[in-house]
Design a protein around this nucleic acid. Structure first.
Lengths: 145, 145
DNA sequence: TCAATCTTGATGCATACGCATCGATCTGAT
DNA sequence: ATCAGATCGATGCGTATGCATCAAGATTGA
């Protein structure tokens, strides 16, 4: 097992970091310009909508790849704005259930047009569908195990 | 010009963000475990070494894709640890020159084995060289224009 | 020449993040 | 039943980031 990554791997790593930072900053800037909350809020609310029901913070932690204390504080902020509601968890007295509110659902709907346009502008416009599919497939490998 | 990115583009976007965050967190964790400074320090020092001479902060800003105030404070921290030195800029009285010190060169050398192993572990081990080259090429498109 | 504007870099302030730790609860072994 | 250890979520504290602004020097144009 080589400890030296190949030049190809090092180049892929360097561009992964640069490209993601650039694209993320550009998309966040578009959201901000439109007076919308940051992307992290969308991600969290989207996971809740996908789950079609309340989620435990620890589940959000896994799905969002966030540290525990960051989930705790993100939920604080979302709750303060009324986009989610915390409820006690019956099965586990330590835990709680985080639930999407109507206002949260509405925020998802309001953010998507701007978010969608930003994804197109900063990613879609630079890749064909075929290339995007290949990129998605390769990145998927980095997410596994 | 479509405002709707295709499903392939949206998937590529989502995985770009997730994969880069996961890989970055893993590599940072390895560096920290080895008692080494964060990756941003390495990046900055590396750009200075590549430049083979002092750089203006505004040049670092462009190469590192960082905001101006973040460069200013990153250089503060690097200077406080003796890894770089600020010098007045002759040609432009507003500006300054940031120069890599011997200690900074040494830090680059000391960090690389751990960094290299981390890149291999978290990226190289999951991609063949061919795949890494394809990934690098696709990501390059996101960095252009 | 000199005033208006732009560029460079620093900084005060508010917010977000990383780290360690805590209290509360659950789990499992005896 | 009980107790050690693990898990869940919150929080205090230090540090890093984003935002707005500022001072100083460069540049432009009349």
């Amino acid at each position: 097992m080589p400890i030296h990554p190949s030049d190809e791997v090092v180049a892929a790593w360097a561009r992964l970091i640069k490209a993601s930072r650039l694209a993320l900053a550009a998309v966040e800037a578009d959201l901000k310009k439109a007076g919308l909350p940051p992307l992290g809020w969308y991600d969290a609310l989207l996971e809740l909508r996908r789950a079609a029901g309340p989620l435990r913070p620890v589940e959000l932690e896994g799905r969002l790849l966030l540290a525990q204390h960051n989930v705790s504080r993100l939920v604080d902020r979302l709750e303060a704005q009324g986009y989610v509601a915390r409820q006690p968890c019956e099965e586990d007295g330590r835990g709680q259930l985080v639930e999407l509110t109507d206002s949260g659902r509405d925020l998802l709907r309001r953010m998507w047009p701007t978010y969608r346009a930003a994804i197109h502008r900063h990613v879609g416009a630079k890749l064909g569908d075929e290339q995007a599919a290949t990129l998605a497939r390769l990145l998927q490998r980095l997410l596994q195990s």
